[in-house]
Write a protein that binds this DNA or RNA. Sequence first.
DNA 1: TATGAATGAGGGTTCATTCAT
DNA 2: GATGAATGAACCCTCATTCAT
Lengths: 201, 201, 201, 201
Amino acid sequence: MARKLVPEQHEGKRHEILEAAHRCFLRHGLQGASVSMICKEAGISPGHLYHYFPSKEAIVEQMADEYLARLHGVFGRQRETGDAATVLLSEIWSMESWEDTAHCRILFELLAEAGRNERVRAILARNTDGVRVLLSQVLKAGQERGEVDPALDPEHTSAMLIAIVDAAPMLPLMVPGIRFDESRALITTMVRRFLRPEGQV
Amino acid sequence: MARKLVPEQHEGKRHEILEAAHRCFLRHGLQGASVSMICKEAGISPGHLYHYFPSKEAIVEQMADEYLARLHGVFGRQRETGDAATVLLSEIWSMESWEDTAHCRILFELLAEAGRNERVRAILARNTDGVRVLLSQVLKAGQERGEVDPALDPEHTSAMLIAIVDAAPMLPLMVPGIRFDESRALITTMVRRFLRPEGQV
Amino acid sequence: MARKLVPEQHEGKRHEILEAAHRCFLRHGLQGASVSMICKEAGISPGHLYHYFPSKEAIVEQMADEYLARLHGVFGRQRETGDAATVLLSEIWSMESWEDTAHCRILFELLAEAGRNERVRAILARNTDGVRVLLSQVLKAGQERGEVDPALDPEHTSAMLIAIVDAAPMLPLMVPGIRFDESRALITTMVRRFLRPEGQV
Amino acid sequence: MARKLVPEQHEGKRHEILEAAHRCFLRHGLQGASVSMICKEAGISPGHLYHYFPSKEAIVEQMADEYLARLHGVFGRQRETGDAATVLLSEIWSMESWEDTAHCRILFELLAEAGRNERVRAILARNTDGVRVLLSQVLKAGQERGEVDPALDPEHTSAMLIAIVDAAPMLPLMVPGIRFDESRALITTMVRRFLRPEGQV
DNA sequence: TATGAATGAGGGTTCATTCAT
DNA sequence: GATGAATGAACCCTCATTCAT
C-alpha cells in the first residue's frame, strides 16, 4: 500500500533546513554559505535538499521571509501594552544583550542582497509593510491620545522607526564594547523626544 | 629621475583597482564579485592584480578602509559651518536623492562581512572611531553653547547618530518609493528634537 | 479469477512506460532523458518504475526492441501488394510528410548508441535481420518474375535498401525546407532504376 | 615585459581540445562524454578548458563544424578527376574498411542532436549546403556531357546522394559482419544506375 | 610591469538508484 | 502495487591563485 502523504513531515523538514540555512548564512553570509554546508548542517545529502527546495536562491528567499515574519512578529504581540514609544521599541526591549541581536545580523545580509536582488528587495518590502501598518496604527492612536506629535506623518515616521530599530545591531559592529543597555536607553530617549508633542516636557 | 615617480604610479594603479573593485562589490556583493570580474573592470590581467594586492581579502579590506575614510571625510570638512544637528547630518545633506546613497550600500556589505570577519570589523571600528571623535567634539561644543542637552553622553550619542546616518540608505530598500527629501527632513527633525535641551522649544 | 489478469496489467503498464520513455528520448535523447523525466511523463513515481524495469539501460533496450519491431512491421503487412520497389519502400510510402518521420528520429539515437553499446547494436541487428529476411524474399520473388536484376545479391541489396529507407529522415535535418513528396519520389526512382534488370527501360 | 600574444598557439590548443572531444564523443556520445573526460583526454585541467571554450555546448558545435568541414572536404579535392558517380562517391572510395568509417559515427550523434537542437541543426545544414553546391555542379556538368540523366533535378539529387553516403556507416551497425567492399560496390552500382540517362546501358 | 596559461578545489545542481513504508 | 524520502557520485562550470614568459 502506498505510504500516506504526510505533508506536515514535509513542512517540518523544510523548516529544519531553513533553520540550518539561517545558521550557515549567519556564519558565512548568503553567498559564502554553500549548499553542501547547509546540507551538512541540516544532516541531509546534497541531492536530498533539492527535494525540498528548487534552488539555493529559493532557500535564501524563504529563509528571509520566515525570518522577517518572526522578527517582526514581536510588534503584533505587544500592540496594546503601553505608550507609543514602548510598543514601537518592543523589539529592542525584548532583547537583553548584543548576543540577542546576533541573529539580527542576517538583516545586513538581506539588506546587502536586497541592494542587488529584486526578489529579496520585494520580500523585505513586503515584510516591512506589515510592520509599518501596525506602527502607523500605534502612532495614530498615540496622536489621538495626545501622546504623539500630531504633526508627524504616521507613514513616514513608522518607516523611520523601523529603520532605527533595525539599525541598532550595527552599533556593536562599529563600536566594539559599546554597552547594550546604554544604547537601548539612548534609543528610547531619542524616540520619546522625537514623538513627544511640541511644547510638552 | 623617472624612477622616483614609480611608487606614485604604483599607488595610483592601486587606487584605480580599488575603485573598480568597489563598483563590482556594489553590483555583486563582496563574495559575489570575483577577482576576474574586478580585473576586467580595472582593465588588467588577473596575474597583474596580484602585483598590487596579495589576495582578494586584502582588496576588500583596503577598499573598505579607503571607502569609509572618504565617506566620513564629509564630517571633517563641515565641522564649523553650523549648529550641531546640521554638522552631524552633513553627510545626508550632501546628498540629493536615493541615487546618491546607492554607493553607500557597500556599507551593508561591510556590516554583513563585519559580523563574521574580525579584520573587517576592526576596519569598520577604526574608521567609525575617527568620526566619533569629530562628532563628540561637535556635541561638546554644542553643549557648551547650550544648543545640545548637557545630559547626553557625547560618546554614546555620537555613535547613535552615526548609526542613524548609516541606516538611512536602508529606507528605500525596505520601503520602495519612499521620498528622499521627506525622509531627510524627518531624520533632521528627529535629531534636532533629540539633541535639544529639555524644556527648550 | 482476478489474479489471472495481473500479469497482463503488468505488461500493459510496462508498455505505457516504454511509450512515455520513447517520447522523452525523442525530446531529449537517450542520455539526456532522465529517469525522473520518464516517471513524470508516465505518471508514476521513481521508485515504482524500478518495479517494472531493473535499470534505465533496460528501458532503453526494450524501448528499442519494441520500437524497431513496430517500425518494421509495416513491411510484413504489405508483402504481397505490389512490385518489388513498392513493397520495399512501403515504410516511406506509409508516411505523408516529414512530421510523420519525426518519431523515426529515435533511430539516430539508437544508431548513435549502437556505435558504442554492444547490446543496443545487437538489438538493432536482430531487428534488422527480421526485415532483411522479408526483403530478401521480396527481391527473390521479383527476380523470379523478372522484375529485379538477377545479378543483385538479395542479402546485400536488402541491407542497402533498409539503410536508404532509414536514412531518409536525415534529409530534413541536413536540408531544412526540403520537400517530402519530392524526396520520396526521388528515392522511389532511384530504387526502381537500381533494381531494374539491365537493358530494360 | 608582457608575453607576446601567440594566437596560433591558442588556436593550436583549441584544435587539440576539439580532437580530444571528438574522441570522447565517439566513445561516449555527445551527452555521455563529460567535460572532465574531455579534459583528461586533452591533458588539461577542467578549469583550463574554459579558457578556450565558453561551454561544453560550444565545444560540441565547433567540433561539429570542424568535423563536417573536414569530412566533406574530400569532395572539393576530387572534383575534376572522373565521371559524376566517381566524384560523388569519392568520400566512400577514400576509405578502405569499416574501420575507416568509424569516425563517421559522430554523424549519428550529430543527427540525433540535430533533431532536438536547433543550433546543431543549423551547423549540419550549413555544412551540407557547401557539399550540395559542389555535387550540383558535378551533376550539371555530367548532364551537359550526357553522362547524367537530364531529368534529374541537381538540387534534390545531390541532397539524396549526400544522405546515402552519410548513411553508409550505419550498415555495419545494423548488419554486423557485412563486408565493406561489397557494400561499397553495391552503392556504386546503385548510384550509377540512378544517374544513368534513360535508355542507356 | 604585465600577460594569460594553468591549476584543482569547490560552486550549485541533477543523476540513477535504493529503501522504508 | 506504489510512494516519495534519501543517497552520494557526478554533472558543468567558476573560483582564487600561481607561474613562466
